[in-house]
Structure formats: C-alpha cells, structure tokens
C-alpha cells in the first residue's frame, strides 16, 4: 500500500502542479485588455509592462493565496473535526479585518515602507494567535473544541468592532472599508511576493509533513491521544501554522471567502480523505482555482472588476451544491 500511496501522491502532485502551472501561464495572458503576443514575445511596452508589472505578480499572488487558504482550510477541518471549518473559523481573518479597518479609519498611511493596512491587519491576526496560544498554555483542559469555541467568540467580537468602526467612518472611508472587506487580488511588488512565498511555502511544507498526524487527529482528541499523539501540542502548532498562512495572506488580499471551504471538499472527493494526498492537492489545486477566479473577475465584466470573493462564491458555490446532491 505504501508503494501505491507513493505513486498516488506522485500522480496527484504531478496533475495538480500541472494544473497550477497552466493557470499560471494562461492567467496573465487573459484580461479585459487584450495583449499583443508579438509585442509580449519581443518584450515591447506597453504589453510587456502590463504582463510583468501587473498581471504576473497578481497571478502569483492569487496562486499563493489560493494555496494558503486551501491548505489552511483542509488543516482546520481536520483540526476542528468540522467539515464546515474554514481558515476564518478561528477568528484570524476577522482579527486581520479589524486591524485593516482600524488602519483605514485612522488614515494610517505607510509604516516601515509597507501599507499600514497590511501591517495593522497582520498585527490583528498575530494578536489572536498570541491570545489563543496563551489561553491554551494556561488551560490544562484545552482541546480542539475549546479552540473552536474561542474562535467563534473572537470572530463575533472582531466582527462587532469592525461594524462599529464602519458605522463611525465617513463616506469615503466607509467605501474603502467595504472594498477591503470584499477581498481582492491586486498587483504587488515582487519583493512582497517573495516575502509572502517565504511564509507560505515553509508553512505549507510544515503542515504537509505532518499529514499523518492530521489523519489521526481527525478522529478526535481521545482517539489520537490513544494512538500516541500529543494532541494539545499538535493542535496548538496546527492552529499557529494555519493562522500564520491565513493571517499573512488576508493582510494583503483582505478576506476571500469560500476557497478554504470548497477546494478541500472538492479535492477530497477526487483524491480521498488521506491528508498525504489531500494537502498537496489543495496546495496546487487551491492556487489554480483562485487564479482562474481572479482571471474571470478581471475579464468577464471588463473594464469593471468583480471582487474575487464574489467570483469564488458564484463559481464554486453552485458546483459544490451540485456535487453534494449528485452524491
């Protein structure tokens, strides 16, 4: 079986990586404004500039974000034993949103060379991680169930604070807040992309290498502990890893719903529940999915851009329902 599993993993990795590669190549070539491929091959502006400075970094950001959200979603579904868990279930996205909304409300500009929205958002996510890790450290009866309930409470508190700030904001800021809360993929500097990659790639790898432990933890703390897993430690570590991926990407893109829920579910039906297959498939499949959604977002109603969160829901939702009913 190990050989079969190895070949299954190789096949899954090859297929999903190919899918991501195709999305990465085709995505930047498609858009509201048609590119002259002759100019592009000859590296002539404006086509070359549009491709290199706008579309390629944007596509790379979509790939990283989709990958991170899908891996976090699969992880949290195992960690919380909740098929409806998403990267935002534990309050990290809500806290990141609160940070971003606070930055917009206070008109904070740039800090340390980065947009204040990103930094405040990252601080919000980090605060939740530290808060929950401290609670877990102080409570000897900490479990994934208490983690889920704490996440729900944090979500509620942060969402209320966002609503408060939103209601106090003027019309311009209110529009900015609404726009940020919709989530969106924009072109960013390559140096920022590299920094995001330095978080997403090792973070995802860490999660992937513990795939067998997530399998065992999916049956509950008691079953996992009875099979030799230090459930408390693994739950905290998994939460921190998932929160790191979610919080970092949310700081840059805003909250993007649905990806972390539907991609793992769809892939589970294709490759099975074993996290050794599901997580690598989610990494590449989730990346490809968000690239496709972002490409559609900026192409279908061009020159108007549809928020990518709307596209993920409109595209993924009906397909997901169809898949469930087909079963």
């Amino acid at each position: 079986m190990a050989d079969t599993l190895r070949s299954k993993i190789s096949r899954t990795l090859a297929l999903t990586a190919l899918l991501a590669a195709v999305a990465l190549v085709v995505g930047p070539l498609v858009g509201g404004m048609g590119l002259d491929y002759g100019n592009l091959l000859a590296r002539r502006d404006p086509d070359w500039q549009i491709f290199v400075q706008l579309r390629l970094p944007r596509t790379l950001l979509a790939l990283l974000t989709g990958a991170a959200l899908s891996v976090s979603g699969a992880l949290f579904q195992a960690l919380l034993r909740d098929a409806l868990a998403t990267p935002s279930s534990l309050g990290v996205s809500a806290a990141a949103s609160l940070g971003a909304v606070a930055a917009i409300s206070t008109s904070a500009g740039e800090t340390l060379g980065f947009p204040a929205v990103w930094l405040f958002s990252l601080l919000g996510a980090a605060a939740v991680v530290v808060f929950i890790a401290m609670l877990a450290g102080a409570n000897t009866r900490f479990s994934s169930f208490t983690l889920l309930l704490t996440g729900i409470a944090v979500n509620g508190i942060c969402s209320a604070a966002v609503l408060l700030l939103h209601s106090l904001a003027g019309i311009t800021k209110s529009f900015q807040i609404t726009h940020w809360l919709m989530g969106g993929i924009d072109a960013i500097e390559y140096s920022t992309l590299a920094m995001l990659g330095l978080i997403v790639i090792p973070g995802s790898l860490w999660i992937l290498l513990r795939a067998r432990s997530w399998n065992v933890l999916s049956y509950g703390d008691e079953w996992a502990a009875g099979r030799g897993i230090d459930t408390r430690r693994l739950t905290i570590e998994g939460f921190v890893a998932g929160a790191l991926l979610t919080g970092t990407l949310t700081a840059v893109t805003g909250p993007i719903a649905f990806v972390g829920l539907i991609v793992p579910h769809l892939l589970r039906r294709l490759v099975g529940a074993d996290h050794r297959l599901l997580l690598p498939a989610s990494l590449f499949g989730g990346g490809a999915f968000l690239v496709v959604c972002d490409t559609l977002s900026r192409s279908v109603l061009a020159p108007i851009e549809v928020p990518v969160g709307v596209t993920t829901a409109l595209l993924g939702g009906p397909f997901f329902v169809w898949l469930l009913w087909k079963r």
């Binding site: 579904q77 195992a78 034993r81 098929a83 067998r212 049956y219 509950g220 099979r227 030799g228 589970r268």
Partner: peptide, 19 residues
Amino acid sequence: VTAPIPFTVEEVVLTGRTP
C-alpha cells in the same frame, strides 16, 4: 469514534500503527 471526514476502513486501521 466519529469523524466528519470520510476516511476508509483501511485508513482507520492504519491509525493504530501511529505509535
């Protein structure tokens, strides 16, 4: 034991080898 994720019987038995 309840798992919301659809593992196969063989995968459940495999968890016994974790230690």
